[in-house]
Every structure is written in structure tokens, then in C-alpha cells.
């Protein structure tokens, strides 16, 4: 009798724990849907062809779009990727495969601190390093700041997923008389590629939405930029500018811009996932 009641007590506790974890999991994904639906409701009405093809218009003039900011964000993300991916991935490979325990500890510790540095401080650093020297805000400075922010993120995720590759594969490759670097490139990195790409995407998605560091570097404008040394518009900057302005027309455009930014990040995610999908997945 007593054991039966104890049994139901344990069962109840089990169900309760399951519900708590489920609730937490739901709470994590609910904001995404809230944001998405809110953006759809507020921004979808302002989306039209002109939004993607036209430059912003002055206040009071109807129409206009964010074409330059959309292209600007893509250009900045491209530059950031060119800078962040090789340094981050190769650094992560070094950390996971070659570094001595001591050196690895120092690099890891430094990267973790860098990952915690507020983005506005990155902006100020690149302002001092690049903008002052080039005597002006520029595409280059914007790409550099986003790229520099990506490096420690990519480095750490790359390292972590490489260390998750079972050592059996490493041993099997080396025992076949395959050289160390070949083993690293063709076996270990290949095995962890999907996870490495996921890390890249996460860091790309994070810097895609950065506004503060761009205020100090890319600065933004409302025309097309033709040189790496010109200032350039970016969606987060444009959203920021339009959202703090006192005009309803601009507010609607800002909502639309936010929706486009979210869709862009989702699209990049889907495309890259398709490209790196598991050959043997059913």
C-alpha cells in the first residue's frame, strides 16, 4: 500500500519535471514567433517592389525603399565573412588540433573575453584603428568591425565541434599512413563541417543585426556607395534612423526593413544548410 502511493508520488514528480522542461523549451521559441508575427503585421504592408529597388526618399515624399541598405548589409556581411571565416576557422583548427594545453588555454580565454566585449566598444576600437586613419567612415571599416567580431565566435565554435569528433576517426586516418594535416582537413574538419557551418551562420546572423559598431564605422547614407572608402548604408542602421524619426511613414518603412533583415538571415540559414546537407541523410 505504502509502496503504491510512493510509486504514484514518483510518477507525479516525473510528469511535473517533464512539464517544466517542456514549458522552458516553449518559452525559448515563443519570442521568435512573437517577433516574426509582429514584424509581419507591422511591416508586410509596406513591402513592395519599390522597397527593394529604390533609394530612401526625403520626408514627406511618398514611396522610396531601402535598396541601398539591403545591398549594403550584404556587402558588409560579405566582407565580414571574408575576414572572419578564414581566421576563425583556421584558428579554431589550430586550437583543437595543434595547440599545446597552455597556448590553447590562453587563446581560449582571450577569445571568450572578446566574445563578451560590448559591440559598441568594437565600433570605437575600429573607429580609432581604421576610420581615423582613413579620414572617413567607410565600407571597409564596417566590414572590418563585423569581421573582427566574428573571429572569436567562429574560433570557439569551430574548436568545440572539432573536439567533438570521435578520436576513433583521427586514429583510423593516422593508422592508414595519412599525414597529420591531411587527416585534419579531409577527415576531421570534413566530419565536423556541418557543425562548423552552423557556428558560422550563428555568428553571421549575430553581426547582421549589429547597429552600434556600424554607427562608428560604416555610418550609413541614403545613396549608393561606389568605393570601399565611402560610407555605406546597412539595414540595422536604416531601421535605427527611421525608427527614431518622428514620421509615421518612416516608422512603417522601419518595420518593413526589420522584416526583410529577419527574412534575409532565415534565407542565408536555409541556403547554407541545403549546401552542406548530409549526403547520406534520408
Amino acid at each position: 500500500m505504502e509502496s503504491a502511493s510512493h510509486h504514484s508520488y514518483r510518477k507525479g514528480k516525473n510528469v511535473l519535471m517533464q512539464l517544466v522542461t517542456l514549458a522552458c523549451a516553449l518559452l525559448t521559441i515563443i519570442p521568435l514567433f512573437l517577433i516574426f508575427f509582429h514584424l509581419l503585421r507591422s511591416g508586410f504592408g509596406s513591402l513592395n517592389l519599390a522597397f527593394f529597388t529604390h533609394l530612401p526618399r526625403p520626408v514627406g515624399e511618398p514611396g522610396g525603399g531601402m535598396a541601398n541598405a539591403i545591398v549594403g548589409t550584404l556587402v558588409l556581411l560579405g566582407l565580414a565573412t571574408v575576414l572572419g571565416v578564414p581566421f576563425g576557422v583556421f584558428g579554431g583548427v589550430y586550437l583543437a588540433e595543434y595547440a599545446s594545453r597552455r597556448v590553447a588555454w590562453i587563446i581560449r580565454f582571450t577569445a571568450d573575453i572578446l566574445n563578451g566585449v560590448p559591440s559598441i566598444i568594437w565600433g570605437m576600437a575600429v573607429y580609432a584603428l581604421v576610420v581615423l586613419r582613413m579620414k572617413g567612415f567607410s565600407v571597409l571599416a564596417g566590414g572590418i568591425v563585423l569581421g573582427m567580431m566574428m573571429i572569436p565566435m567562429v574560433l570557439r565554435t569551430t574548436e568545440e565541434v572539432l573536439l567533438l569528433v570521435p578520436s576513433g576517426y583521427r586514429e583510423a586516418a593516422l593508422a592508414l599512413g595519412i599525414s597529420r594535416w591531411r587527416t585534419v582537413c579531409s577527415i576531421i574538419v570534413r566530419t565536423a563541417l556541418k557543425a562548423i557551418v552552423t557556428g558560422l551562420l550563428l555568428s553571421l546572423a549575430r553581426v547582421a543585426g549589429e547597429t552600434a559598431p556600424l554607427l562608428f564605422t560604416a555610418f550609413g547614407n541614403s545613396v549608393w556607395s561606389h568605393h570601399l572608402s565611402d560610407p555605406i548604408a546597412a539595414l540595422p542602421l536604416q531601421i535605427f534612423t527611421f525608427a527614431i524619426a518622428p514620421y509615421d511613414d518612416w516608422h512603417r518603412q522601419a518595420w518593413a526593413g526589420a522584416l526583410v533583415l529577419l527574412l534575409m538571415i532565415t534565407l542565408i540559414n536555409i541556403v547554407v544548410r541545403l549546401l552542406t546537407r548530409d549526403r547520406f541523410a534520408k
Partner: peptide, 22 residues
């Protein structure tokens, strides 16, 4: 050692075919 391992192959306790390869 790479050359030694080409002459002396090894099979492990846990089978470890490379999962990304056919």
C-alpha cells in the same frame, strides 16, 4: 611515423568507417 603506418596498418576495437564517406 607516417611511412611506418603505411607499412603497418591497424584495425580498432570499435569499427570506425568515416561517416561522411561512402
Amino acid at each position: 611515423p607516417v611511412v611506418v603506418r603505411r607499412r603497418v596498418g591497424m584495425v580498432f576495437q570499435k569499427s570506425n568507417p568515416f561517416p561522411t564517406m561512402s
